[in-house]
């Protein structure tokens, strides 16, 4: 039995499941929108129910932590903010334990490390001769302006963790990577919230690599020639989409990625890389729960089938 922890709307999970069905493999899809009821958890036993169906821990052979969280909330229609907050902390503890239990199974990704820290990744690159743009986190206007000047007024600023998402009435607002102008920088107040600034790399093209069990499946995105996608390709141009093509990173670079992923304990993740106009590779970030359909389909990598085979 394969346990998949995901979210209701994740299409990649559905596509992997289609292959599991084709391979005649048994699976349980547990979306975070559904409840996992713990029937019995002791030092040597773990039984739980999903949609009133019972399962034993020993029935599970492999676990794919795709995204989302385990959810123990009961829909009793009673809400209490203080108790809910307390329960949330208690459940966090319990989730960490259950995910640690899963480590004894064949595991594709681990909930306990899915929120890999961008700063840790950049520090690792710095210490292990992997090119990455230099960065600064500061609350000081003076420091920010000095960094801006050092990089010839070519810097970007972006979220440390997740992009900003906010709803107002019926509209959804989202933030992207931002390349500030001189005016933006000089208008900053003397002190501000901790902000992440990074050297802007003039790119030849960007690369999205999906890493799966020591193998890199890379795709090149020609986003540089379109002003709309130059800074952040997620400003998709639907009228003139970026050209996408399979790409092979140099073996030496793939070995470095492999070593890095092992050191972070990851066996699956999406990696963002850019190749500069000087032909150097710069690693931008790693996302263990990133979307891989965008790499799998245009490049014919069939990553969904490969994941299903692994599980």
């Amino acid at each position: 039995m394969i346990l998949i922890i995901s979210q209701k709307d994740d299409l990649s999970t559905t596509e992997v499941i289609r292959w599991l069905i084709a391979f005649n493999k048994n699976y349980i899809r547990l979306n975070e929108e559904s409840t996992m009821v713990i029937d019995r958890l002791t030092a040597n036993d773990f039984r739980f129910s999903i949609h009133s169906k019972s399962y034993k821990y020993t029935d599970i052979e492999s676990v794919w932590y795709r995204r989302g969280e385990l959810n123990f909330k009961l829909s009793l229609g009673i809400e209490d903010a203080n108790i809910d907050l307390y329960n949330e902390k208690e459940h966090t503890h319990l989730k960490a334990y259950i995910h640690n239990l899963f480590k004894s199974k064949r595991l594709l990704n681990d909930f306990n490390i899915y929120e890999i820290n961008k700063l840790e990744v950049l520090r690792y690159c710095h210490l292990n001769t992997i090119n990455a743009p230099s960065f600064l986190v500061t609350q000081s206007k003076e420091e920010a302006l000095s960094f801006f000047k050092t990089h010839q007024e070519n810097i970007i600023t972006k979220a440390l963790k997740y992009p900003f998402l906010a709803r107002e009435k019926k509209s959804l607002f989202a933030s992207y990577t931002f390349k500030p102008s001189k005016e933006n920088m000089t208008s900053l107040p003397q002190r501000f919230v901790p902000t992440f600034f990074q050297q802007y790399i003039e790119k030849r093209y960007e690369i999205r690599t999906f890493y799966l069990n020591e193998r890199c499946y890379s795709m090149v995105i020609f986003s540089q020639n379109n002003p709309k996608t130059r800074i952040d390709f997620r400003h998709y141009d639907d009228n003139k989409p970026n050209r996408l093509s399979p790409y092979k990173l140099p073996s030496e670079y793939e070995s470095k990625i492999n070593k890095m992923m092992k050191s972070f304990g990851l066996n699956s993740a999406s990696i963002d890389i850019v190749r500069s106009i000087e032909n150097e590779y710069f690693l931008l970030e790693i996302n263990p729960i990133g979307q891989f359909k965008m790499t799998s389909h245009p490049c014919n990598y069939d990553l969904e089938m490969k994941i299903a085979k692994y599980l």
């Binding site: 900003f164 959804l172 500030p180």
Partner: peptide, 23 residues
């Protein structure tokens, strides 16, 4: 609102890139 809060220093600068996805 975002522009005002970036100026006040309580919203990070990159929020100036925010756009209305629904539109």
């Amino acid at each position: 609102k975002i522009k005002k809060q970036v100026k006040n220093g309580i919203a990070p600068l990159h929020l100036l890139s925010s756009k209305n996805l629904t539109e």
